[in-house]
């Protein structure tokens, strides 16, 4: 419990900064919706863009002139930002003792390394939940402000649920990396590298359907946002598979951390 509270306090500042940034990201993104939705010529321009261009700027097959379609496009960038937060948090919260050389303070206390992991993962989990709620509130507020069409709050909530799972995937991936690698600085960069590769894969598979099998490497592709836009909700199989991945990453953190030598 003491480690949990300590980590909440230690991450408070960073959490506030991230929350403000996410809010500003949503705010600035949504503010541009009027340009997309003004109808007439701009709608035709968007629809006539080649598919590859649409894919690269994140439009994919969304109709960005509707609120749901536009939100889906913007969502990909929001999701990237919160995924970066989760990955850095997951790697950092485990690696920080070794990075800041406080290992010899904490790890000689009468607690097991597994207890340390549990407390830290819980603290990180709370942070991720808060970021998710901040995103949800910002999105609902901004969508309501600019939306002139049908209400999409329930879709936004589905988007946020899917985003939460992606956050958990990257959080536990980062934690597993930090638990595995002995160099405290490498784990963060390594996790970020994997995140960017996953993001690039998601862009590449947007361009062509032929290599969709690669999507398995990209949590950004675990949920069909086209389905979410059309109100079909989350695919339960995807949810279960993603959560199993989360469990596997978390389990490997518990497995590797007690086994290795701590960096002092």
């Amino acid at each position: 419990m003491n480690i949990f509270l300590r980590e909440l306090r230690a991450n408070r500042k960073s959490l506030i900064i991230w929350s403000v940034c996410i809010f500003l990201l949503v705010l600035s993104g949504m503010a541009k919706y009027t340009a997309y939705s003004s109808g007439g010529q701009s709608a035709a321009v968007f629809n006539n863009l080649p598919h590859s261009v649409k894919a690269l700027i994140g439009m994919g097959s969304f109709d960005v002139t509707t609120m749901a379609g536009y939100f889906a496009m913007l969502f990909l960038y929001t999701e990237l930002a919160v995924a970066i937060h989760a990955a850095l948090l997951g790697a950092g919260i485990i690696a920080k003792e070794e990075r800041d050389k406080t290992t010899e303070f904490l790890m000689i206390k009468p607690i097991s390394r597994k207890t340390v992991i549990t407390s830290k993962l819980f603290a990180a989990f709370v942070n991720v939940v808060i970021v998710n709620i901040v995103t949800l509130v910002s999105c609902v507020a901004m969508v309501t402000k600019y939306n002139k069409g049908p209400d999409i709050t329930s879709e936004v909530i589905m988007f946020m649920l899917s985003m939460f799972i992606v956050q958990l995937v990257f959080l536990t991936l980062g934690a597993a990396m930090a638990a595995f690698t002995k160099s405290p600085k490498a784990s963060g960069s390594f996790t970020m590298g994997m995140l960017l590769i996953a993001f690039i894969i998601s862009k590449i598979t947007d361009l062509t359907d032929k290599i969709n099998v690669l999507n398995i490497l990209s949590p950004f592709k675990y949920f069909s946002y086209v389905d979410l836009v059309s109100g079909k909700g989350l695919d339960i199989v995807s949810v279960i598979l993603s959560l199993s991945l989360v469990a596997a990453f978390a389990a490997s953190a518990y497995f590797f951390y007690p086994k290795r030598d701590l960096h002092i």
């Binding site: 800041d100 406080t102 010899e104 303070f105 000689i108 009468p110 390394r113």
Partner: peptide, 16 residues
């Protein structure tokens, strides 16, 4: 790990 309850340790370099 609980045997460390009775251990006090002063490392050569202290970082907090």
């Amino acid at each position: 790990p609980e045997v460390r309850r009775e251990v006090g340790y002063l490392p050569s370099e202290v970082f907090y």
